[in-house]
């Protein structure tokens, strides 16, 4: 019995808690990708850097607030800086749209041209971020570190395995839930949200119905800025902020969006968790689990070393492309 509980605690600590946290971060990132895809119909390669930019502004504001003594007590100051970071990112994206994408909209360019333009934008943001804050690792989480420490859990339950929950993990989950509820309320209950879905569904008919495309595009960028900034900040609070990682996270985010079905918000969330849990489960060393089940084994019993975690997103992506290119929630594959 103890062994089963210990196994559960072990899996909870190394699989479920990190999986949920990572899944939330990917889901928020993938939502940004899928929204832009639904409205502007291209895969936005600059999204990772948008996340990095949002996080950077949050970090700078956090530092400013810290220097004048503003803090949220046990919560990270970054949460207070978040709205301002979002505002800055909104501004950046709207300026980008005005000077880059709008032109191609008027030209009715093919998606591939948008895609290349987004690569140029990615470069630009990338340089901007390194120019302002540099390429180094930044810690900016100043709140309490843990909701529950492994030691406390052990004392409380008498188990051998500890279950730790970091504050950043708790914050990630709560913020994600709130944000997703707000987003779906917006998309399903408000006129502006419905007009976005209509535009994503059938652009020509939306135009006929008197929906203003410029407004829809603007709202899409604003939502994307908010999602990207929050996703990036949560990721940065949980791990640390390093500009380079935001380029690497692009692959799992894209994989999540495609697995769920490009253009489908529900799909993006589901895809985020599919990717996150697969990645964590495949790179987890199962040796101790086997131990608790009564088999002593040599080796880590790990399917894939963590160095190859990107291979997991990629493998899932390939399977989806082979089996169901429209994704789990039937997005657009054409």
């Amino acid at each position: 019995m103890m062994d089963i509980l210990n196994t559960l605690a072990l899996l909870g600590n190394y699989l479920i808690v990190p999986g949920i946290t990572y899944g939330c971060q990917l889901a928020l990132g993938a939502l940004g990708i899928t929204l832009i895809y639904g409205i502007l119909r291209f895969s936005n390669f600059a999204h990772g850097e948008t996340m990095a930019f949002g996080t950077m502004t949050v970090i700078l504001l956090t530092w400013a607030m810290q220097s004048v003594g503003i803090s949220l007590g046990p919560l990270p100051t970054a949460l207070l800086a978040l709205p301002f970071g979002i505002a800055a990112t909104v501004l950046l994206l709207l300026i980008t749209d005005r000077y880059v994408y709008k032109f191609y909209r008027q030209q009715r360019s093919t998606p591939v041209i948008y895609l290349i333009a987004s690569i140029g934008v990615m470069f630009l943001y990338n340089g901007l971020i390194r120019f302002v804050i540099g390429p180094d690792d930044r810690q900016f989480n100043d709140g309490t570190r843990f909701i529950m420490k492994a030691r406390e859990f052990k004392e409380m339950t008498g188990l051998r395995e500890g279950l730790a929950i970091k504050s950043s993990q708790g914050i990630t989950l709560i913020v994600t839930i709130l944000l997703v509820i707000a987003l779906f309320w917006f998309l399903n209950r408000t006129r502006a949200g419905k007009s976005m879905r209509a535009y994503s569904d059938n652009e020509d008919l939306a135009l006929l119905s008197g929906i203003d495309p410029d407004r829809v595009v603007m709202i899409a960028w604003i939502l994307t800025a908010a999602l990207a900034t929050i996703a990036g900040t949560l990721y940065g609070l949980d791990k640390s902020f390093k500009p380079f990682t935001y380029l690497q996270i692009l692959l799992p985010i894209f994989a999540a969006a495609i697995v769920g079905g490009l253009g489908s918000p529900v799909g993006a969330i589901a895809g985020g968790f599919v990717i996150a849990f697969s990645e964590v489960a495949v790179t987890f060393a199962y040796r101790k689990v086997f131990g608790y089940m009564g088999y002593e084994v040599d080796g880590l019993m790990q399917l894939l070393s963590t160095d190859y975690k990107f291979a997991v997103s990629f493998a899932i992506l390939v399977i989806v492309l082979l089996v169901k290119p429209t994704g789990l929630f039937s997005g657009k594959s054409y």
């Binding site: 209509a198 569904d201 059938n202 008919l205 008197g210």
Partner: peptide, 30 residues
């Protein structure tokens, strides 16, 4: 449309992922 023309295209004349009621709502967007 604002002047009072209603047009039903031959194809692509609904918002497929939206509910019937939402389709009607979108029709009345203006």
């Amino acid at each position: 449309v604002r002047k009072g023309m209603g047009f039903v295209p031959q194809t692509g004349n609904v918002f497929p992922s939206m509910s019937v009621e939402e389709n009607l709502e979108m029709g009345a967007f203006i």
